[in-house]
Simulated scan of single mutants.
Amino acid sequence: MSPIPMVRRSVVLALALTATISSGVAFSATDSSTTSSSNVSATPGWPARPLRIVVGFPGGSSPDLTARTFAEPLSKIIGQPVIVENKVGAGGNIAADYIAKAKDDHTIGLFINGNLTIANLINKRVPYNPQKDLAPLTLVGVSPLVLTAPVHLPDAPDGQDARAFLDAARKAGDKWSYGTPGVGTVGHIGTELMKARTGIAPVHVPYPGYPQVAQAMLGGQLQMALLPPALALAQEKAGKLRLIGVTAGGRSTLTPDVPSLAEAGVPQLNLELWNAFAAPASMPANIRARLSDALIEIARSPEVRSKMFNQGWQAVGSSPEGLANRIKADTATMGKIIKDQNIRAE
């Protein structure tokens, strides 16, 4: 197997960052940062104390790493410590509900797709409404998923030919299985969308997380999965998995040597993981505006763009309106699949 190009090798380095980081670490306004001070106008009397970024996933997870990347420069801009706090459980929905109900004007959250879009479409018992109880601040990072398979798979050709692989999947029908980090995740909804548009029929098997999905493929329990680029590239470099195609309209800068599934004739499969900041809807508009402007400035800074890339993300830094539009569009797309396939939380 040929060496991975430098741009891809840098994505693989993201895996080295997954060492556990304890929750509740504060980043002081006096810490050094190369991010310039924000030009946003001051908000009298705010912040009066440290700001909390609540994350619904454990230390060392991708959302946690993103939150900590933003915490230090945000502290410098607002002039108060910024604390990253992990409230783990229910696929991030415990933290999302906590943020939705926060009334202190000093709590925001770092969210994944599902928490801001389809949470209550999958599970009617989810106690918050993403569209009503949370206010978008900015979309900070996007990443396509990579259709991945074992290097040698019975009844499927070796190599990266997506058309041949999908042909084999169609012939296999429900004899094949695919793995995801759980019901209602982007990997789950995305694969169901791919099934609807390609005629393949693998059976869904949920796991605790993406690393366990990759291990199940290595052990022969799964024949395919949509994985984040950093994990997929690391497994390809080790010679354990092969990369079939990315869920994007074109090639991604995160995986430039991997063809898009659109190139294999899969229509309208522009599917991405994303991370975004949002605040309680009850937070005053002027405070939300100041936070949004600061987070956008940080996301667009060269230093943070580089850090995000090395973690497997393309940095964005959208306006709140841009994030709101993305939430609306993704909710409509994934909501249709949820309805058509009658997907419900188990």
Rank of each mutant, 00 (worst) to 15 (best):
T107F: 07
P256E: 05
T253H: 06
T69R: 09
Q215V: 08
N270F: 00
V205L: 09
A289P: 11
S319N: 07
V11S: 08
D293I: 07
G91W: 14
P157R: 09
A156I: 00
A329V: 14
I338V: 12
V316N: 02
D330Q: 04
G89H: 12
K76C: 10
I287P: 10
Q215C: 01
V11G: 01
L116M: 09
D155R: 07
L74Y: 02
K76L: 14
A214F: 03
K76Q: 14
R8S: 12
R326V: 10
L254M: 13
L137Q: 05
I118A: 12
T333S: 09
A100P: 02
R49K: 14
K339T: 13
E263K: 13
E263A: 15
T333D: 13
P73N: 07
T66I: 15
L254I: 13
A201L: 02
A119N: 08
A90M: 09
M1C: 13
A225Q: 12
F277D: 03
L147D: 00
I108G: 10
L233V: 04
A71V: 10
V7R: 15
P211G: 08
S2M: 11
N275A: 15
A285S: 13
S252I: 02
G219T: 02
A48K: 09
I21G: 13
K171G: 00
F27H: 15
T20V: 11
P73K: 04
I189M: 11
T34P: 05
S292V: 01
N325P: 02
Q268A: 06
T43V: 15
P284S: 03
G209Q: 15
S301Q: 09
P302T: 04
N113P: 03
R125G: 11
K240P: 00
S41F: 14
N325G: 13
R170H: 06
L134Y: 12
N286E: 14
V11L: 01
I189N: 11
T191L: 14
M6K: 11
S61N: 06
A16T: 14
P154N: 11
V7Y: 04
M334D: 12
G173K: 01
T185W: 07
I77V: 10
T69C: 15
V25Q: 13
G322Y: 15
L153C: 03
G92E: 00
I118K: 04
Q268L: 07
